[in-house]
Amino acid sequence: MILAIIENAFLSLIGSAIPASAVVMLAATGAMLGERVGVLNLGQEGLIGIGAVYSVIAVLSWGVESPWLAMLIGMIAAAVAGLIFAVCVVAFRASQVLVGLALALGGIGLSNQLGVNRNGTPIQTLFREVNPGGVLDNNDAVSAFFFHDPVVYIAYVGLPVVLYFVLFRTRHGMNMKAVGENPAAADAVGVSVTGWRIFYSVLGAALTGAGGAYMVLSFTPTWSPDIARGRGWVALAVVIFAGWRPGWAVAGALLYGSMISLDTTAQARGWGLPFMGASDLSFFLSMLPYVVTLVAILIPAGAVKLGRRVRSTAAPAALAIPYSREER
């Protein structure tokens, strides 16, 4: 009996956590792509905003009727921002931390400015959930994992599998890792460090933009200022938690997502504790996702320091270090 209640609570938590952190999953995959080739893009927060606001503009002002096309427009806008970032840090070799923060600030400012007249306008062009009709119905225990948008499956299953395969099973992935770990060696065997770094940071920015687009095209679904609300930073934390391994990002994103859905569930049902009223509990729970994310970052590092062997959770050796052939 109690077991069934716990199982139910867990499944409903996961069921709402999955869409809640699909954004984080997409942004974390995007950030991971760039970081694997040695480019740390701290601007995820801004890229989510840019991706979101251009999808909103596409739907509300340009009359785009397909959510996929709207998402593509958001991705292109984020990719353009990512290209500016990549040119500054890879070609000009400007500080990745400074330009990344500039992208975070500028992206938030720009997207809020562009969205200012569209606050709260509901979006009608939405992704439709995949309905495994006939086979399952909405009340089955496993339904927590189904009845989501196609984007959710791309984010949680498609991208990690593809990225894992490319990174660890192909020569191309070997070269990617070489660019991130030892760019001089990659350069010596004829891999263009500059080209690869720019390409993958732009691709990563586009994925993060897709995350922003997903927010307004399915999750919220409307524009509001500061739409990312820290999800970009959480995504960067998830990459660290995951130890730069695509599969583990799923766990990190779901951890964050279940904290978020715990908060919303508690608010909706008016949960309280003996020593904490419902409204106080909700304030407390809204701090929890960030606290849990912070603790999650400390786990891999702590495990290494405390002597538990953890397989390859170190950052790419050349992360955030500009490469120039004349200086190696």
Binding site: G46, C88, F92, R93, A94, S95, L98, V99, L101, A102, L103, A104, L105, G106, G107, I108, G109, L110, N112, Q113, V116, P225
Partner: peptide, 22 residues
């Protein structure tokens, strides 16, 4: 002028500083 523009301007200025450093 909206307050958001200030953040966009901050972003551009910060990029300018990073490029100036190089």
């Amino acid at each position: 002028l909206s307050v958001y523009i200030i953040f966009a301007i901050y972003g551009v200025i910060l990029t300018g500083i990073a490029l100036g450093e190089i």
